[in-house]
Write a protein that binds this DNA or RNA. Structure first.
Length: 512
RNA sequence: GGGCCGCUAGCUCAAUUGGCAGAGCAACUGACUCUUAAUCAGUUGGUUGGAGGUUCGAGUCCUCCGCGGCUCACCA
């Protein structure tokens, strides 16, 4: 900012001039220290405690100093009512010229604006209208804002500005703040849950020499000193299982994954995934644990095992429904894919049932389409679908009684996939064979097929105990629990296309 | 990437058939010592996303470009 010419808007210039006016009279508009004695919430709590001991209309005799952003101001002759908001709530200030002196009173009117951070000292009382307020004896500037806050009644509506300038969105829209507070509660609930069960939280590489653990296109980058290509991880899975090989029995990681694919209401290029792995557990154990986890999160976030998503009341208190993928598809579409092992046969049956499927779709993808089109939209209440065709699951262990299927489950709630888990494949030679199968798909043009990870196979050759593992998309889980329809509404700074270069200083267009 | 829709003052939104670009909030000037979307009187603020074109005349119609939303395809 030092050497750039910033063209301020008229409103910004007006505010800048006010900051200069304060400076000229010896008041720093950006002082280094605040002297808060109480948050707005503490102040209200305090008044609730002392009010019964006060005479009617009496003032608390304690002098408090509160801080916050000035969010409203109503001037009435020689009094001003204003609200400040801090991180804990809002509180009304009652400012009388006789209390603060003429100069401070005039300054507050002329040089302070909505959006400024202020510090106010005074005593608590209740107004005739019934609102607990601070009768101000002293007020000062903590930080002069040059941008006007968004309109007070409608807030900030413009979707693009809300995402590009999340700071303005958070200032203007209380419900947006609440979504991200809930997200934080969800994540801390997860950590508490896993920590309490003897898991350790670990960190594995974001920059990986080889990507794996999921079917997706990666972001590619170059490490200059090594002269080597790295990939941003698309999953943590293979590293976490290396740790199981190494002897850690219970590990988890909550981390950003990156996938270089399309963006829509359910997809962002970077997103947050929880994965955990437990030695000597199978997918049924993981399933039981997942159910407990969801129940705990609901209790922590809502205080009850019920919440609303898309106008559906979802109840997580009862045992979650469990059915095999085969039965679920058969019930919903009449198609029994296990009896239709030929691609043509399955495609014909799926289309006869009304599915919209492209002609060149491969067998496992047809099964996936049947799931998407017939089953998934109806899985509103929590439902585990289990036992997937091996072709869909290159890292999962086969069922002992049916090698065409793997011990895998997905959890669906509110019509969306919340978790994907399986008994981990620990047979190194089977794993190698699956990688080779992926390699063939890759050579056939499937850009999302996994590359062969020889080091991972090498790790398995040291022996991995029977292990259960799971991935839970934190963003999707948050969408479910905050009833948000778009993933961007649960990611603070969603990816957006960069704006073309233009002059800084405009309130709206300058971000990005 | 395809289809559809959108972009007007700092914010929220108007503008009839192509005919003077407006309102509320914010800001500015003033009145008002218990207001709370305060009220009242007045004032300022615009490259209508950008560039072209058609036209006597374009926010409005056409072309191209930018950004965004919804949706379809792929994916979690």
């Amino acid at each position: 900012m030092v050497d750039s010419e910033i063209e301020l808007s008229e409103l910004q210039r007006t505010r800048q001039e006010k900051a200069e006016a304060l400076r000229k009279r010896g008041t720093e508009p950006y002082p280094p220290h605040a002297a808060r004695t109480d948050t707005t919430a503490q102040a209200k709590d305090r008044y609730a405690r002392v009010e019964p001991t006060l005479p009617e209309g009496g003032e608390d005799n304690a002098e408090l100093t509160l801080v916050g952003r000035l969010i409203s101001r109503r001037h009435q002759g020689k009094t001003i009512f204003a609200h400040i908001r801090d991180g804990f709530g809002e509180l009304q200030l009652y400012i009388r010229r006789d209390d603060v002196g003429e100069e401070a009173f005039e300054d507050f009117l002329k040089l302070y604006d909505l959006g400024d951070f202020v510090q106010a000292s005074g005593r608590l009382f209740r107004t005739r209208a019934g609102e607990v307020s601070l009768r101000v004896s002293d007020i000062s500037m903590l930080s002069k804002a040059l941008n006007a806050p968004p309109e007070k009644w409608h807030g900030l509506q413009d979707v693009e500005t809300r995402y590009r300038q999340r700071y303005a969105d958070l200032i203007a829209n209380e419900e947006v703040r609440e979504v991200f507070i809930k997200r934080s509660k969800i994540v801390s609930s997860i950590r508490r849950f896993l920590d309490g069960r003897g898991f350790i939280e670990v960190e594995t590489p974001t920059l990986q020499p080889l990507y794996g653990g999921a079917a997706a296109r990666p972001f590619t980058t170059i490490h200059h000193a090594l002269g080597q290509t790295f990939y941003l991880r698309i999953a943590d899975e293979l590293y976490l299982k290396r740790l199981i090989v190494g002897g850690f029995e219970r590990v988890y990681e909550i981390a950003k994954d990156f996938r270089n694919e399309g963006m829509d209401r359910n997809h962002q290029p970077e997103f947050t995934m929880l994965e955990w792995y437990e030695a000597y557990a199978d997918y049924r154990h993981v399933m039981a644990m997942t159910e407990d986890l969801i129940r705990q999160i609901a209790a922590d976030v809502f205080g009850e095992p019920r919440f609303t998503k898309d106008d559906n009341e979802i109840d997580v208190s009862a045992p979650f429904a469990r059915k095999t993928l085969r039965d679920a598809i058969k019930e919903a579409s009449g198609v029994d894919y296990v009896a239709l092992l030929g691609r043509e046969e399955l495609l014909a049956a799926a289309r006869a049932a009304g599915a919209d499927i492209a002609s060149d779709t491969v067998w496992p993808r047809i099964v996936d389409e049947l799931l998407k089109q017939f089953v998934r939209p109806n899985l509103i209440q929590p439902t585990f679908l289990l036992d997937y065709p091996v072709e869909l699951s290159p890292l999962a262990k086969r069922k002992p009684d049916d090698p065409t299927h793997v011990e895998r489950f997905q959890l669906y709630i509110g019509g969306g996939e919340i978790a994907n888990a399986f008994s981990e494949l620990n047979d190194p030679m089977d794993q190698l064979a699956r990688f080779l199968g992926q390699q063939r798909d890759r050579e056939a043009g499937d850009e999302e097929a996994m590359p062969i990870d020889e080091d991972y196979v090498n790790a398995l050759m040291y022996g991995m105990p029977p292990t259960g593992g799971i991935g839970i998309g934190i963003d999707r889980l948050t969408m479910l629990l905050t009833d948000q329809p778009n993933i961007r509404d649960v990611i603070l700074f969603p990816a957006m296309r960069a704006l073309p270069k233009r002059g800084p200083g405009r309130a709206v267009e300058s971000a990005g």
